[in-house]
Design a protein around this nucleic acid. Sequence first.
DNA 1: ACCCAGGGTCGTC
DNA 2: GACGACCCTGGG
Length: 289
Amino acid sequence: MYKEQKFVINDIKSFELRDIFDCGQCFRWNEQEDGSYTGIIKNGVLNVKKEESNVIFSGLLNEDIEKVCNEYFDLNTDYELIKEKLSTVDDNLKKSIEYGEGIRILNQDLWECIISFIISANNNIPRIKKIIDRISENYGEGIIWNDKKYYTFPTEKELSKASVEDLRKLGLGFRDKRVYTTTKMILNKEVDLNEIIKLDNSNEIREKLLSLDGVGEKVADCIMLFSLKRFDVFPVDVWVRRVMNELYIKNENEEKVNKTEVRKIAEEKFGSLAGIAQQYLFYYRKNVS
DNA sequence: ACCCAGGGTCGTC
DNA sequence: GACGACCCTGGG
């Protein structure tokens, strides 16, 4: 089952812990006293530490750590090349990239990503993290590693044991029904996640995701970007709309800025890398300006 | 005490 | 296609 494992990469580029884990794409990674980050992923508990230009992965995992990390951290994608291409778009993006130069788009578990981003609706990141932790503590599986107890994110079967009222007690608010319904839809394969993963056509995937309760345009885009490697999709939330308006649209009334217009500009400027550009812009705008 | 906003979506008109 | 409602929490 779970095995204690370790994996080291020397001289890594485009890999900064804070940029990766605090840029808003994931909710289950926490910084430790020594500056490393520990997270719970589908395959177990993982700690990532950076020493100079070397990265040390260690953890208690149910699959080969090298395989897991290669996939989860998107290690086969050349981010140096991506940054080079995007930096030529304009100085705005170039500045954002310099700030978040160590960002990588994680390849997260589809099921967990769907539920996490349903919870993200009209919510803030600290609260989203707390809710997901409580869901895991109550319905996930406990794993002990280095004398600490961690909880995996529950499977659809495990989470289906929660009633709407149970979810409300965990602080989900009005999202309780959405999580409940979507869990049932996925469990009974009304929407089959294994089928979605195999699909080639992004529009077909989007259509299926949108049929889930609580999944609208923005959440569907996040799911496609953060767990299905669709780097061309451009999720537009309040922060992205804000930064895109400030940089390109310059409408006095930010709230009047049309999301369709934002997406169109993103597609024109950033093309097939729009999703990654979005992450640099989001991270920079939220933390700096 | 009160108001506002937060990685939006849904139902209704 | 626009509009308000929606749980909850932290910060002004």
